[in-house]
């Protein structure tokens, strides 16, 4: 049976993993390659490496790290952060990444999704959507944000998720900026809506604090994969424990030991 995936996310700056509450107050959680290999050995189903500074300061992506990760780990991994062209993607895939994640560039130029899917195949194109709930006197909407989740756009999240699928995305990485860093649980309702509408897998991100939160996002939230960072990096939840718990709760889980 196809299993629910547990995905540690490594936010990377200068080859090292960093993660802070709501993307500020960065704390050092170690060497990015070593940590990825550790997670793979522990039973992580995939890894995501995000070059978190790339969009903000325009820094180019992190090819050398990607190459070292690909040489070391034997599970799939996705890379993202500041990717904006066919050339960027080509370089990352050639370095050994299995998938790339695009975010701000897809919002700026949605045709990029079509172009990348055509050039490299949908299976390796992940579209990351950072979303925040905005309530004003006149409206309450889930709104797509860019630039690390700080900059609101005019785009509504739910139709955007459908659009990226139609344009050829192979997977959606949905991060709720409302729950990210709070450890209060994933955004279940929004995740369920988007995953229920989609015929491609949805990775839920933002808000994981307990093992129950993962159970909830795979059941109520209908997610195909759950992603988290700091709770893994700081050993608040160990991946083998989490997978044993979800397996005990009768979810389809890849048990490796």
């Amino acid at each position: 049976m196809l299993t629910k995936r547990i995905i540690p996310c490594l936010d990377v700056k200068d080859g090292r993993t960093v993660k802070g509450v709501n993307f500020v107050n960065l704390r050092d959680a170690g060497d990015a390659v070593e940590l990825g290999a550790l997670y793979a050995a522990q039973g992580a189903d995939e890894l995501v490496y995000l070059d978190i500074t790339a969009t903000i300061d325009g820094r180019s992506t992190f090819i050398d790290l990607v190459r070292r990760v690909a040489q070391t780990v034997n599970i799939p991994f996705t890379v993202g952060g500041g990717i904006s062209s066919i050339a960027d993607v080509s370089a990352l895939l050639l370095a050994g990444a299995d998938k790339v994640s695009i975010n701000s560039a897809a919002v700026r130029n949605p045709d990029l999704i079509n172009e990348l899917a055509l050039e490299f195949g949908s299976q390796c194109i992940v579209v990351a959507i950072d979303t925040r709930y905005i309530a004003t006197e006149n409206s309450q909407e889930h709104v797509v944000h860019t630039h690390g989740g700080w900059k609101p756009t005019e785009i509504r999240t739910i139709p955007w998720a459908k659009e990226v699928e139609e344009r050829g995305a192979g997977e959606i990485l949905l991060t709720s900026m409302d729950t990210d860093g709070t450890k209060s649980g994933f955004a279940l309702e929004l995740t369920a809506t988007i995953s229920g509408n989609a015929s491609i897998p949805v990775i839920a991100s933002g808000g994981a604090g307990t093992m129950e939160h993962f159970y909830n996002v795979f059941t109520t939230g209908k997610a195909d994969a759950g992603l988290a960072a700091s709770i893994f990096h700081f050993r608040e939840i160990d991946i083998p424990d989490l997978k044993a718990f979800l397996n005990y709760k009768d979810l389809p889980i890849r048990m490796t030991r």
């Binding site: 049976m1 196809l2 995936r5 189903d45 299976q123 192979g170 491609i200 994969a225």
Partner: peptide, 15 residues
């Protein structure tokens, strides 16, 4: 077939 509740592509770990 795409007329089931299951998503296509088949992506992930299966036994």
């Amino acid at each position: 077939p795409s007329d089931t509740n299951l998503k296509v592509p088949h992506m992930g770990w299966n036994n």
